[in-house]
Simulated scan of single mutants.
Amino acid sequence: MKLDKKIVKRRTDFMAAEGIVFKTGVAVGEDVTLAGLKAENDAVVIATGATVARDLPIKNRNLEGIHFAMQFLHRNTKSLLDSELADGEYISAKDKNVVVIGGGDTGNDCIGTSVRHGAKSVTNFELLPQPPNERARDNPWPQWPRIYRVDYGHSEVKQHMGKDPREFCVMSEEFVDDGSGKVKGINTIRVEWTKSATGGWDMKKVDGSQQFFPAELVLLSMGFLGPEDRVLGDEIEKDARKNIKTPPGKYHTNVEGVFAAGDCRRGQSLIVWGINEGRQSAREVDLYLEKSTSLPVTGGIVKRTAQEIFGRGLAGEVSIQVTAAAN
Rank of each mutant, 00 (worst) to 15 (best):
V157Q: 06
R137C: 07
P131H: 01
E167Q: 14
V170G: 02
Q159D: 14
V157T: 04
K163S: 15
S172C: 08
S121Y: 02
L128K: 08
E156L: 14
K163C: 10
R146K: 13
G103Q: 05
V115P: 06
G107H: 04
G118L: 01
E174S: 14
R135W: 11
K158Y: 00
W141G: 08
I147P: 00
H160V: 03
G107Y: 03
Y148N: 14
R166W: 02
K158M: 06
C169Y: 06
R116T: 10
E134S: 09
E156W: 01
I101S: 06
E167H: 13
D138R: 06
D151V: 08
R146G: 09
M171W: 04
G103H: 08
R116Y: 00
G104S: 09
D109T: 11
T123I: 04
F168A: 07
F175E: 11
C110P: 06
V157R: 06
V122G: 07
Q143N: 14
V170M: 15
L128Y: 09
G118P: 01
V115T: 14
D151T: 13
P132N: 12
F175R: 15
I101R: 07
P140T: 02
D105R: 07
E126K: 07
Y152L: 03
S155Y: 01
N108G: 15
G103D: 05
G162K: 09
I111L: 12
V150C: 03
Y148I: 02
P142C: 09
T123F: 07
N139P: 08
K120V: 10
I147F: 03
M171F: 08
K158F: 02
A119F: 05
F168R: 11
E156I: 02
P132H: 11
M171A: 12
P145V: 13
Y148G: 01
H154Q: 12
P132R: 13
F175H: 09
W144K: 15
H154R: 13
P142D: 07
P145G: 12
F125M: 08
W141M: 14
D151W: 05
G102E: 13
K120I: 11
S172I: 01
G118T: 04
S155Q: 12
L127A: 12
V176D: 00
G104T: 04
W141T: 12
P140G: 07
K158T: 08
I101C: 07
R166G: 05
V176E: 03
G107K: 04
C110G: 05
